[in-house]
Design a protein around this nucleic acid. Structure first.
Lengths: 194, 194
DNA sequence: GTAATTCCCAACGCTAGCGTTGGAAAGGAA
DNA sequence: TTCCTTTCCAACGCTAGCGTTGGGAATTAC
């Protein structure tokens, strides 16, 4: 049979995303990633260098995805509400990224990989909010960076403490998710209203 | 020397809070807890039954603390803003609880201990918001449970993804924390405004 | 005083996971 | 063909952590 280096690496990455998101850096074992990917453990070390490096790689890939898939484009309050809704949707549809970031926040905090790159990425979002504020469409009650972060909080907290969300707003269901999403959109818009 | 059962148990609990909050259920080892507490590992098993049970116990204790220390009392928008500020402060001053809850959300999610008790606890908070809504002091834009949760989101997201907070709003400092707190208070009040 | 109970620890067996290694199989270069 | 490189894996040594046990020391009950 022919080699399939590319395929092997991809299978490892796929398995790693799932495992890391599910169990976190500590709970994840290289053995299991290899088993799920259907390859030998040694391949992981050879291609990616080890657990830490693989985690960093996985997170970088997922961040690139979200940067591509959830652009910020609205410059007024309604646009920010819409953006919050899309962030909420993304968290729902791709829980991996949110989980990875929260594992990262808990396990590492200081000294995260690619910090400079990621800061720049957020810089664009803040600039968009700032532009909205200059045009008078968005409130000047908050500094742009703070408002940006608070909007992300509204969209993200649900998945950060799902057990609390369940206890406060009731069990998850299609209906409940619709309620939550509507609340997030409305809340972000209200926060951003001039 | 005389026995000090109570003291031994307390030392274990103290060490367990610190270790679990820092490293999470997976990263924490019973060995280490025992070492930090200065007692033998066997004591942990004898008194608390094991890692899982100890984690549940630690979380229950911390939840009892916050329920005692951060009452909700305001019935109007400003009161909710004030409450959000106090929640933010609590997260700052006692990062353990927030971290424990987030570890729990990541590691277990479904089937958390004491769910009924905790749901009841949140029920009081929701009732307070609801009362504010009935009196017309708090907006009816959101259902009470949703508004309650969103307010907690504003206060809690900072510590959930500290690395993101840092990248968006700049490095932590006394000044920056004051800015953040002010944003949280203002945002919660604005959300709740009629 | 002594028997029973409780508290405590050192040490054990066991498993799981880490990262590595020696070598086999597949492909390419000459 | 022959030699070299790359991909892959089975198996290894090692460590850390889990939960337990057997026994010793302090305390209490009788």
């Amino acid at each position: 049979m022919a080699w399939d280096t590319e395929g092997t690496q991809q299978k490892i990455l796929d398995a790693a995303v799932a495992e890391f998101a599910q169990r976190g850096p500590d709970g994840t074992t290289v053995e299991r990633i290899a088993r799920v990917a259907g390859v030998n453990k040694e391949r992981v070390y050879n291609y990616f260098g080890g657990k830490q490096e693989l985690f960093a790689r996985v997170l970088r890939d997922e961040l690139a995805r979200v940067a591509r898939d959830v652009p910020i484009d609205g410059l007024d309050a309604a646009g920010l509400g819409d953006y919050a809704g899309r962030v909420y949707d993304y968290h729902r549809e791709h829980p991996e990224l949110s989980r990875l970031m929260r594992w990262e926040g808990l396990a590492f905090d200081s000294e995260v990989p690619d910090e400079e790159l990621r800061r720049e990425h957020y810089g664009y979002k803040i600039a968009a909010v700032d532009a909205g504020q200059r045009s008078g469409e968005v409130t000047a009650d908050f500094e742009a960076d703070q408002l940006m972060f608070l909007v992300l909080a509204l969209a993200g907290w649900w998945s950060a403490v799902p057990q609390v969300a369940r206890m406060i707003t009731g069990p998850e269901s299609a209906d409940e998710h619709a309620r939550r999403r509507a609340s997030v959109v409305r809340a972000a818009a209200k926060l951003a209203a001039a």
